[in-house]
Amino acid sequence: MTTMSAPRVTSADVARAAGVSRATVSFVLNDTEPGRVSETTRQRVRDAAARLGYVSHAAARSLRAGRSNLVLMPATQAAIGRLVSDWLDDLQQGLHRHGYTLVLHGGHDSDPVDLARSWAELRPAAVAVPGMQLTPAAVDLLRNAGVGVVLALSPEAVPGAYTVIFRHDEAGRLAVEHLAQRGRRRIAVVMPQERGLDLYAGQRLAGARQAAATHGVQITPVPLAYRLADAARLARSWHDSGWDAVFGYNDDYALLLTRALQDEGLDVPGDVAVVGADDLLVAQLARPRLTSIAFDTSSGAELAALIDRLIQQPGTEPGVLHTAAMRLVERDSS
């Protein structure tokens, strides 16, 4: 048996039900020219749309406006851990309050211009991406496609883009500097094996190596997947490695490895000093309490307000908007 689909509800249907013109429906449902339509009429239109089950056509609205209400981020941004997961949720809610929708884009092109082209096809109002995925040519492509705000989350300023400086190498530098000052000489640095983390892990390793060179200590990168079995396997090799400290990439990996080391009979911090990053609540609840790197950066809600302001005031010149500070929070594990 063939099932007949129900006819699509259109703005003309809403206009007839509300007793207004299609232009009035457009003004109300697209929230444009608010002073042009009385609140009584606006409510009548909204009630009619809800009663009929009308859903506006986002693509058509974007075509008329020249852009959508989307704020786009690469999907790999979501893979960094609990800290960024909470921050993204805060950003999403903040953008929603300003009338935007956060979209995590799953493009996997390695070429920055190809990536930018795939983002531009959606005609987002803004894109916020790691600076390493932005080149001047990619920024130009996005600008020429009508993307009003190109925001880089980057260790250095990106020409043509608004930039929030976020130096992951500083986290590695602070961790290893602290461990070296505590007399640790052979330091392992966890390199997460989960997809999307290599970009940030590489930067943290670079900072760790910089501090190691300054303080004359040895650095060894060690791969670790976020699985208890993998942590146990690494912990079993610890007795023969000679490592007396570890920078665990973030608190999640640091605590996973801490538990595995303790299960192998190693004392933390007596045999192995451990430092994490993100300064999550769980770092304070762990035993021993975990030394961690805290990130003092803008909240997601603050960034949402900033993105909205840049969209609404397009004359603002690109440049560095904010620099995230980092600090080491010393606790019992180191």
Rank of each mutant, 00 (worst) to 15 (best):
Leu134Asn: 04
Leu134Met: 09
Thr135Phe: 13
Thr135Met: 14
Thr135Arg: 07
Thr135Val: 14
Ala137Phe: 02
Asn144Cys: 13
Ala145Pro: 05
Gly146Ile: 13
Gly146Ser: 13
Val147Ser: 05
Leu151Ser: 08
Ala152Val: 10
Ala152Asp: 11
Ala152Pro: 10
Ala152Ser: 14
Pro155Glu: 10
Glu156Gly: 12
Glu156Tyr: 10
Val158Phe: 13
Val158Ala: 14
Gly160Asn: 10
Gly160Thr: 10
Thr163Ile: 11
Val164His: 03
Ile165Trp: 05
His168Val: 02
His168Gly: 14
Asp169Gly: 11
Asp169Asn: 11
Glu170Trp: 09
Glu170Ile: 08
Glu170Phe: 09
Ala171Arg: 02
Ala171Thr: 10
Leu174Trp: 07
Glu177Lys: 04
Glu177Phe: 00
His178Phe: 13
His178Ala: 06
Leu179Val: 15
Gln181Tyr: 10
Arg184Gln: 10
Ala188Gln: 04
Val189Asn: 04
Val190His: 02
Gln193Met: 12
Gln193Tyr: 03
Glu194Ile: 12
Glu194Ala: 15
Arg195Pro: 02
Gly196Cys: 06
Tyr200Phe: 15
Ala201Thr: 10
Gly202Tyr: 14
Gly202Ile: 12
Arg204Glu: 05
Leu205Thr: 12
Gly207Gln: 11
Gly207Trp: 08
Ala208Ser: 15
Arg209Thr: 06
His215Ser: 06
His215Phe: 11
Gly216Ile: 05
Val217Glu: 01
Val217Ile: 05
Val217Phe: 00
Val217Ser: 01
Thr220Pro: 00
Val222Gln: 11
Pro223Phe: 03
Pro223His: 04
Leu224Trp: 09
Tyr226Phe: 14
Arg227Asn: 07
Leu228Tyr: 05
Leu228Phe: 03
Ala229Phe: 02
Asp230His: 08
Asp230Val: 04
Asp230Thr: 05
Ala232Ile: 05
Arg233Asp: 12
Arg233Asn: 07
Arg236Gln: 15
Arg236Asp: 14
Trp238Cys: 01
Trp238Pro: 02
Trp238Asp: 06
Trp238Leu: 01
His239Ala: 15
Gly242Asp: 11
Gly242Met: 08
Trp243Thr: 08
Asp244Pro: 10
Asp244His: 09
Asp244Gln: 13
Asp252Ile: 10
Asp252Cys: 05
Tyr253Gln: 04
Leu255Gly: 03
Leu257Asn: 07
Thr258His: 01
Ala260Glu: 12
Leu261Asp: 03
Gln262Asp: 06
Gln262Pro: 00
Gly265Asp: 13
Gly265Phe: 11
Gly270Ala: 12
